[in-house]
Structure formats: C-alpha cells, structure tokens
Design a protein around this nucleic acid. Sequence first.
RNA 1: GCCUGGGUGGCGAAAUUGGUAGACGCGCCGGAUUCAAAAUCCGGUUCCUUCACGGGAGUGUCGGUUCGAGUCCGACCCCAGGUACCA
Length: 818
Amino acid sequence: MNAFYDPHRIESEAQSAWAQAKCFEATESAPGEKYYCLAMFPYPSGRLHMGHVRCYTLGDVINRYHRLKGYNVMQPMGWDAFGLPAENAAIKNGIPPAQWTKDNIAYMRGQMQRLGFGIDWSREFATCDPEYYHWEQWLFLKLYEKGLVYRKNAVVNWDPVDQTVLANEQVVDGRGWRSGAVVERREMAQWFLKITHYAEELLTELDKMEGWPESVKSMQRNWIGQSQGVEIDFPVQGRDDVLTVFTTRPDTLMGATYVAVAAEHPLAKAAAADSAEVAAFIERCKQNTTAEADLATMEKAGIATTFNVSHPLTGKPLPVWVANFVLMEYGSGAVMSVPGHDQRDWEFARKYDIPIGQVIEPVDDTPCDLSVAAFTEHGRLLNSGEFDGLDFDAAFAAIADALSAKNLGRRVTNYRLRDWGVSRQRYWGCPIPVIHCETCGVVPVPTRDLPVVLPTDVQFEGVRSPLTTMDSFLNCTCPKCGRTDARRETDTFDTFMESSWYYARFACPDANAPMVDDRVNYWAPVDHYVGGIEHAILHLLYARFFYKLMRDEGLVGSDEPFTRLLMLGMVLQDGKKMSKSAGDAGDPQKLLDKYGADTVRTAMMFAAPPDQSFEWSEAGLEGALRFLRKLWSLAHDHAEDGLGGELDAASLSDAARDLRRRTYATLAKADDDYGRRIQFNTVVSAVMELCNAVGKFTPATESDRAVVTEALRTAVVVISPIAPHIAEALWPVLGKQGSLVGFPWPQMDDSALTQTSVELVVQVNGKVRGKVQVAADADQDRILTLAKAEDNVARHLDGKTVRKEIVVPNKLVNIVVG
RNA sequence: GCCUGGGUGGCGAAAUUGGUAGACGCGCCGGAUUCAAAAUCCGGUUCCUUCACGGGAGUGUCGGUUCGAGUCCGACCCCAGGUACCA
C-alpha cells in the first residue's frame, strides 16, 4: 500500500504534525546554543516567484540542518509591506493599497506553508502594521533630538504632466512612464539621516566580518569610498566668498586651469542671473534624471560663467564653469580641474579649448603625451615653482602645508557615501512624524502622540498621494504653540527604513516600550542571513547603520547585525531578475500542485550552487521527482524484506565494506557542504550516488541488510533539510520513531572510510597514459615501479630519458621525459 | 561610465588547497519489460580520428608562470547585479 509515492498526502501529514507539535516555535529557554536563521523578508507582490522559492528553501535548509546539529533555531517570517507596487495597483485597479497588501500576504503565506518551511509563524508581522512603524517613528524622533537627522534640499525626478515625483525606475529613457513627459530635475526639502557620521565605523568594521563574502565587503568598501585628500578654498573674485573643492590630487594644484560647479550650485545660480546663456544651460541640465548611471554616461557639457576664482597659491584668476557632470550631492558641488592629469578634465578642456598644462612627469618609461591623453599616474612635479622635483607624497604634504599656512586648505578624509535621504512623496509608507506650523516651523510630533497612523481608507484620484488632499490627516494642532491650523507632513519614509531593523523586531515582535526589549540580546545578531545579491549594498548598509543607531540608543548589545551572510545569485527569467520580469512563468503554484513541495525544493537546490545566478527552467523537476520516488521505493522494498540484524563491521564482504564507506563519505561530505561550504546541489548529488550504490548492492547476510539500513537511514537524514516531508514519512519505515526535526545528526565513523588500495593516475609529460592500483601504504619507489610497468605508460617511456618524477600521494604520478 | 560577480558537453552543473575536466541530473540514442503505452530497469552519450588498441583537441579570446592551469598572473570580449526614489 505504501509502494506508491504520493507527495500530496505525506506532505500535508508532515505539515500537520509539525504544526501540532509547534516544532518551529522558538523560545529563549529551549536547550542548545541559539541560532538565528533569517532569509530576507519578501515584498508582498502577489504571489511567490521562483526567486522566493530559492531564497526561502535555502534558509529552511540551513534552519533544519542546524536543528539536526542541536541548535536552538529561530526562523521567523514577515512582510516588507510598504512600497510602490501597492500604489500602482491602487491607481490601476482602485483597490486600496492596504487591502491589496493584506490579500497578497494571505496568499503568499499559504504558498510558504505549502512549501513546508520550518518557520515560527507566531512572530509574523508586516511593516505596515502601526505597532511596527510606531517604533520607527519613535527612533526617528530620538535621532532628531541627537542631531542625526536634518532637512535640506535635494534633487528629485519631477513629472511636469502628472505633477508628481518619480522613482528612477519610473523614468524610462528620460520620460515619465505614465505621462511620457520629459522629466525634470527639481529641488525639494527632504529629510536626511546622517549615515556619514558612521562612515568610518561602517568601513573599518568590515575587516572583522569574517562571515561575509569578500565580494560584498568589497562593494561596501567602494561604496563608502574613503579617500584622503585636501579641501581647498578658491577665493571668488569680486565676492566675499570662497569656492571650496575636495581633491585627492593636491600635487596637481599648479596645473589647475579652471574650476567647475554643479548646475544647482549657488554660484551657478548667481551666474544665471547675469547671463541668459548660462540660465539656458542650467535649464538644459534640468532635463535629466537623478540616476548616477545616466549622469556618468551622458555627453559631458559645460558653459563658462563670468566669475573667476583666484588660485589659492599663485593668485592667478581661473574661470568658473558650470558643468553637467558635477554632482551637487557629492562633496561641495564643485571641483578643481586639472586637464593635464585627469582624463575627464582633459576631454572637457579639449572640447572647450581650455588650456592644458603639464605639472607632473613620469619617473619611469610610462608614456606621457598630453596631446593624446591626460597623464594620470603619480609622478614628479614640474612647472610648479617651489614644488618642482617633489614626488607625490612630498608634493601632497608640501602643498597641503602651504594651503594650510594661508588658511585656504586643510587635509581631510572624504567619503563617497552620502547622507541617506529618507523622504518620499508617496502615500503607502510610514508617515514622517513631524508637523509644520507657521509660527514654529518644523515641529516633531511628541512621542506620546505616536504612532502617526497612516489612514488606510483612501481613494486614489490620480497618481498623487491621497494624503496631500486629505484634511482629516493634514489638519492638526501645533504641539509647541497650540495653533490649530498646523499641517501634518505628508511625506513618508523610504521603505528601506522598515527593512533596516525588522530582524531585531523578530526577537520580540510584541515589544511595546521601546522598539525592542531584552529578548533581542538572546537572539541577535542574526547568525545566518540569506538573501539576494541585489541587496549587497543599500539594504545591508542601511541595516548595519540602523543597528549601530540602536546600539547607541542602548537597545542592542553588539555592533553588527549579521554574523554570517549568504548572498544568493539571481534566479533569472528571460535573462532578467524575476522581480522585474513580466508573466507568471515564475509562479511555483502549478509546480506545487503537480509535483509537491519536496520535488520543487529538491529541484531548486539541485539546480545550482546558492551564490550562482541561473535561468529558471522546469527541466530538472522530473529528475528530482524520479530521485525521490527511487528513495521511496528503495526504503520500502528494503524494509519489506527486513532491516537486518547486528551490523558486524569487522567481518563484511568487500562490497558491503564499500557501501559502508560510501555511506560515511556521504555523511562527511554533506556535513561539510551544509555547514561550511553552503553548497547544497552537491549534497543532492551525493545522496543520489549513495542511492545508486544501494540499488546496485545485493545483500547476502543479515549484516549486509543492516549495512543497507544504515545507508538508507543516512540518505534520509542527510536529505531531510532539503526534502523534509518524504524524510519524515520514510523514517518510521526504516524502523525509527518520532520526528526527524529533533533528531541528532548521525555520528561519524571514520574507520569506515579506510581503504586498503588506491587508484593512481599515471601521466607522462602531463598527459594521462594509464592508471595503476597500489596499496594505500606503498612507498614512492614501489609506486614508481608499478607506474612505469603499466603497458601504455611503458610504451610512452620507451627510448626516452626520464628527467623528473613527481608523485602526489593518493592522486597521481607524473613522469617527465626528454 | 564606475563598483562587484560570472562565462566548462545539446542543457543545469561537478572538479573544495595548482594534480584524472565533465561527477550527479536533464535530454537524446540503443536494449529489456508490455498486446500497446506510461512507469520502471540495463547500456551508451565532449568533439575529431581509428575496425579496434590507441591518438589528437578541448573549460569566453589572446598571452604568461608551472612537471602540471577550469583553478594563479596580464590584456581583452561578452553577460548579469548594483549605481543612492524598484525591492
């Protein structure tokens, strides 16, 4: 009756049993070392796609493996519920974002349960719950008190037809995706978090984070972009003002032939007031997006103003240009230009006939011809007056000192990292808890009045946020002066705010004062964090920043939130990442209905190693199903004929000894792949090979039968993190009681691995010419004698002189002949 | 543009510390079983050459280091992710 593998029956039985026993509900008092295993929570977009299946299956494999290893594991799940797609759905279909989000969560939760993930659902929350974002508003106000929050102008993409701010994603080829209007750069007052205050710690801490991939640390280092340089003041002629620039190349200062400012720079605005051409150029600069990739690839353009600055050392006038490639957001919004020694400046100078002078010469044979390209290497100074002949380091110091002496410069450490703009002109997000009063200006909402609840009964009458016209939300009393005509801030927070601390909230999802309580210091930091490589910079940097903010608020007792990080490659569809591609080919539902969860999970794990991107294809599902069926029938067929007697390891046949060796080799490999390498496709292969070996072995004695039982039990335990339902169903078939969820990982038997003889490859001049079987303890002379005696090897050695012999133990022999 | 990855049979991939390239699986070919089919089982499957034994080539391209390179070094090509308002 059990010969037929029916995944739907055994999966619902296993899932009911887990739910009834509450096996995945974690408590602080359970035995074992704590292990907090977390996969990045999803945006509830509607239904799961195969990228989600991959991410949460990987998380669940880590969860279940660590349970087998005796850890007290907590694996929670929640919903990153605020965001643009809910608003787009509301605009398109008229469904309020809250309702749309709630429905999506219900559907996706059902899909996750159907996949059999060992999740502690008692900790679930969505970031759109007021009980959650309450504490985000609270932290913002704490940071406001500390001066870690400020307001300044920043540039946004403005759609002049829809009269709304667009996300970079909503700008297609420079036009609004709905209106088709050319977008404009527009300045707006925005709230900022001082992440740059933590730049140095965010950078240096990376060196200690051994559980993170080098590639991610490297990306974060480059993003933070620390550089040592000099801040130089160029006095603006005719104005009581200086233009401050930052440079990492003060050694080239004597070669500066102009300075350039951003279109939004005050000096550019002043120049525009006097010149119609400059004003027109600035207008043209506005016809651009805020995306860095666009700015970096566009045609470089500029216009001269009538302003001059004085060179800080020579006093010579240098013209001020407005250039489209200078970013107001980065540094001071101005740069000094040295066309002889910077390629971008060189191209700009060529285009606009600005003089190009040489002040650095190579000290070796590096080519240097300024009529062809800038010379950008470090070198020796010339045409630099008193600094001539100095090398880079000496010139850096001497020029920095000279500037410092005139009070026109100072050495500084600069960061590429910019402060985090958190204001969004959108409805579906966490309200920023401030009030605007005509008397008092910007007034923070008192913490006793939190949370500022986002109204959910809204109608979209266009593309703009309904908050901007909702009197019941807008009108309020100033908490400072009591004026009754104050207005509530209608901007909401960047949704990266919610995902920057949710992992801490999972430790104590009902904490009520303040955002987290003591339980966080049992569970945090997250021991293993799993998520897509697309989050390598922004999300992970913001989360690290927030954790430090919480630490400095006295809320958490460690410095970094994620001890070990697993960055998943993308699951692609039509060559694009799944969350970006259209269509429902990525929907796992029909696969679950047809094959069951274990097959989907196994196929996904088998398809590729976790860190690799791959194109999703259903081709592997039949193979995974075939493998699970095979395991099923091997176990049942074997059990039917008896599980065998005592296993007498000392008196086994060679074949039985070989099967035992394979059993323990599989166990050791799986342990290493699960625990250290985090590569699960090879675990599936190894169990497949073990099953193939069991299939080929014919037991002759009761002891042989016991060897097969041991092999099958090992196969079932080892595959259980990946295919947990079939493993639960086969466990009693193989004579074991209880659930595998709490079962300890099998003891290793190293003695089973010993071999009496090994096969060596014999190469002649690096080419394989034969193979020989030698005793495991054979010495080098014996190995070489056997190798040279092999027929084909002997033929290749015939008449040649042996020049060198290399013996690699247990691997190969290479005989070099001349 | 810049930063970070990746490129291996018809396909997904394996090769963990520089040591047999292609494990395992998909697909395909042949066979067994079957009235037939599905399912299952057995065998084969990088390419070229050879009746066969064998030989030659081969891990994006070009070059280098080494007894030996998918793995290390240099240059380049292509693809993906990120690029601060997609999440």
